[in-house]
Design a protein around this nucleic acid. Structure first.
Length: 113
DNA sequence: TATGTGACATCAA
DNA sequence: CTTGATGCCACAT
């Protein structure tokens, strides 16, 4: 029957988990892919509510400017940056270098099955 | 039910 | 150029 469920958060987790290695995306891009372009904030909110069984690489999700706005939510002070650099992504001053080069657009890469 | 909040995005001055 | 303010939607209390 009609079970709405939190398909919003669920979808965010799904998309985030589909982010390929060495790539990054923006909250707005995910929100746009979900059809809630104006709910970019909800994407970040979903990250804050990531269930333990959901392994979501939130460190691969940054804001529109490629700035690691959510790094404060990670353990340590620069864990998010370290994770990104560990994947070959250059980060300078809490900002992703060549962001558009590493940018991964779900609406384009996933582009509807 | 109403109020507050937030890991964004966009515009204006 | 920088800073401020607003909109937005879903969740929490």
């Amino acid at each position: 029957m009609d079970k709405k469920e939190d398909h919003f958060f669920q979808k965010v987790y799904e998309v985030a988990k589909q982010i390929p290695y060495g790539r990054v995306t923006s909250y707005g891009a995910i929100a746009n892919y979900l059809g809630a372009a104006r709910s970019a904030r909800m994407v970040g909110w979903a990250m804050n509510g990531v269930p333990d069984r959901e392994e979501v690489p939130a460190h691969r999700v940054v804001n529109r400017n490629g700035l690691l706005t959510g790094k404060h939510h990670f353990q340590g002070t620069n864990l998010m940056q370290q994770l990104l650099e560990n994947e070959g992504i250059q980060v300078n001053n809490d900002q992703v270098v060549n962001f558009k080069i590493h940018f991964w657009d779900p609406a384009k890469e996933l582009s509807a099955p």
